Computed example of a mutant assay.
Amino acid sequence: MESGMKKKKENEMFHVIHKVPSGDGPYVRAKHAQLVEKDPEAAIVWFWKAINTGDRVDSALKDMAVVMKQLDRAEEAIEAIKSFRFLCPRNSQESLDNVLFDLYKKCGKVDEQILLLKHKLKLIYLGEAFNGKPTKTARSHGKKFQVSVKQETSRILGNLAWAYMQKSNFVAAEVVYSKAQMIDPDANKALNLCHCLIKQSRFEEANLVLRDVLQYNLPGSDDFKSRNRAFELSLELDQTNRHDPFPLNIPGLCFEDDFTEALDRVMNEWAPTRSRRLPIFEEISQFRNQLAC
C-alpha cells in the first residue's frame, strides 16, 4: 500500500516536472515524445494520431504547429491549422489565430498577416475577442499577467502597422501607428511612426513625435534600444533637407484600396448599433475621418 502511494506520488511529480499531462492517449504520448524524449518527429506522428482520433484536437493542433515551426516546417503547419481548425471548439480559435500569425511571420507572408490582424480587430470590435471577457491571461518568460482589451487592440494595431512597413506602405503604417498610439502610447510605436513620417518627407511632424521619446514623455523612452534608435532617427533628421517642398517619390506611399476599404469597414461599419460595441472603439472613432486623407 505504501509503495503504491509512493509510486503514484512519483508519477505525479514526473508530470509536474516535465509538464506532461497524465494519461496514455495519443496526445499524452505526443507530449512525452516532445518534452521527455526530445524526439520532435515522433511527437508530430503522435499529434497527428491525436487529431485523427479526436484526442484533445485543439491542443494537439497548436502543439504540433509549434513543433513543426521549430523544424522549419512552418508551411506544413499553416496548412494543418487551416485544414483541421474546424474540429476545434470556438474558444480555441483565438489561440489558433495567434499560432497562425507566428507561422505567417516565420514564412514572411505579410499579406496573410495583414488579413489575419484585420480579422482580429473585427473580433475585438464585436466583443468576441477573449471569448467575450474584458481581460485574458497571457504568459511571458514563464510569468502570467493580465492583458486588457485596450492593450490587445493597441498591440494588434502595432503589428498591423509593422506589416504595412514591411510592404513599404508608409502612409498606411503611419495611420495605424497613430491609432495605436492614441489608445496605448509607447516609445517603440512612436519611433516607428517617426520613421514612417520621415519616409514621407514630413520632417517637422517626425521631429514632434521624436521629441516625446527624447524627453522621456512615453513609456519605454528610457529603454536602451529605444534611446539608441531615437538618436539615430534624430541624426537622420538633422542630415535631411527639411525645407524641400516636394515629398520623396517612394513606391507604396499611397493607400491601397483594400486598406482604405477594410479599415473604413472595420472602424465605421461594424454594426454601430450593437450593444456589444466596446468603449475603446468609441474612443478612437474620432480618428476615423483621417483614414480617407
Rank of each mutant, 00 (worst) to 15 (best):
K225M: 14
G220C: 08
L210F: 01
C196N: 06
D222P: 03
R211Y: 08
G220D: 03
D186I: 09
N192T: 00
S226P: 00
S226N: 15
A190C: 11
L218M: 14
D186V: 08
N228F: 10
L210N: 02
N207K: 14
V213M: 05
D186A: 11
L193V: 09
S226H: 14
E205P: 00
I183F: 11
S201T: 07
D212F: 02
S226D: 11
R202Q: 13
K199D: 06
L197R: 02
N192K: 09
L210K: 00
D223S: 07
L210Y: 02
D184F: 07
N207W: 05
L210P: 02
A190L: 03
E204N: 04
S226G: 06
I198K: 01
R211N: 13
K225T: 14
F224I: 13
C194H: 05
C194G: 08
E204K: 04
L197W: 00
D184W: 03
L214P: 08
D222I: 01
E204S: 05
D186W: 07
N192M: 04
D223E: 14
L208E: 12
R227E: 05
A190G: 06
V213W: 01
K189M: 15
F224N: 06
Y216N: 15
K225Y: 13
A187K: 00
D184G: 01
F224R: 10
L191M: 09
D223Q: 12
F224A: 12
Q200S: 09
P185M: 10
H195R: 02
L208Q: 13
Q215R: 15
F224Q: 10
E205D: 10
N228E: 14
I183L: 15
A206L: 04
I183M: 11
Y216G: 09
I183K: 09
A187Q: 00
Q200T: 09
Q215G: 06
V213G: 04
D222L: 06
D212T: 04
R211D: 14
L191E: 02
A190P: 01
D222K: 12
E204H: 03
A206C: 06
S226K: 10
D212L: 06
D223K: 08
L191D: 03
P185Q: 11
L218Y: 08
N217Q: 15
K225F: 14
V209C: 07
R211W: 05
R202I: 07
L197S: 01
L191N: 05
E205N: 05
L208F: 02
D223I: 01
I198T: 04
G220K: 03
S201R: 02
N207Y: 04
S221K: 11
D222S: 12
R211F: 07
V209L: 04
C196S: 13
Q215E: 15
R202M: 10
C194D: 09
N217A: 13
E204Y: 01
N188F: 12
K199V: 08
K189Y: 11
M182Q: 13
L191K: 02
